[in-house]
Amino acid sequence: MNHETESMNQGRRDFLGAAAGVSAAAVAPGMFLHTPVANAAARTEPVTDMHRWGLLVDTSKCADGCTACVDACDTENGLNLQSKPLGDDKLKWQNQRSTWIRKVKLQDNLTGNVTNLPLMCQHCEHPPCVDVCPTGASFKRADGIVMVDRHTCIGCRYCMMACPYKARSFIHEQVDQKLTRAPRGKGCVESCTFCVHRLDSGDISTACADACSAEGHQALVFGDLKDPTGPLRQALAKAPSRQIRQDLGLNTGVRYTGL
């Protein structure tokens, strides 16, 4: 009986190995989209600080009225499965539903110049949300992704008070439909994870950046801030960029050009 178990697990392992090989081979030619890294497969070792994931937003390419990134994020993380609880006020619900990424439109007070940009969790190096969390549920992963451990979040919302970017949402209602890759439930706080389930499967991409490219805007470049030859660092080197609330010195993982 044990022997049979062994062989079954062996079979499973073989399958995983083969799949990993396929995906590694498959990913390699896709360099223009996805940076190949040493372990382009489901990881078996914990993440390290060898990488720090980041995003560059070119606001000059971010189109007015386009919500491709927002829609893609909603689909990717099951946020499109949210529905207004019966009896809730329509406008209030818009302010209560989870929003991981939002399109922001700004006008310069002096020049009248209009700028569009997506705003999400900025994945700070020194995240205020992590400092204030009483249980440590709000944490920064070794590779720089700021996340919420929903198993220890008690829903106190102190992180939402602390976040300078209004990036976090509290789940105000019972969640009936959720995706396997993005578990979420009532009473916890959540925010953008840089599509961490993709990264952990060896795919260096986010739904928002992919959607932006698919629309032909190419306003979002996702990648490794620690890889000097990677697409993100190369894009960052080309144009001056800044952080939102740069004065706070949080060293965000999301940078903006043309702001």
């Binding site: 995983l16 799949a19 990993a20 396929v22 995906s23 498959a26 990913v27 030619p29 896709g30 989209l33 996805h34 497969a41 489901a42 099951g78 929903r150 969640v175 439909q177 959720k178 995706l179 396997t180 890759r181 993005a182 578990p183 979420r184 439930g185 009532k186 916890c188 389930h197 993709r198 499967s201 060896g202 795919d203 991409s205 992919d210």
Partner: peptide, 27 residues
């Protein structure tokens, strides 16, 4: 309370990642 009760949208695995990369020859 949080985890999916039926397998839905789980499919961010190697196969899908490969297909996602729009590559010829991806299994």
């Amino acid at each position: 309370d949080c985890h999916a009760t039926v397998p839905t949208g789980e499919a961010w695995n190697h196969e899908v990642a490969a297909a996602h990369a729009h590559l010829p020859g991806a299994a």
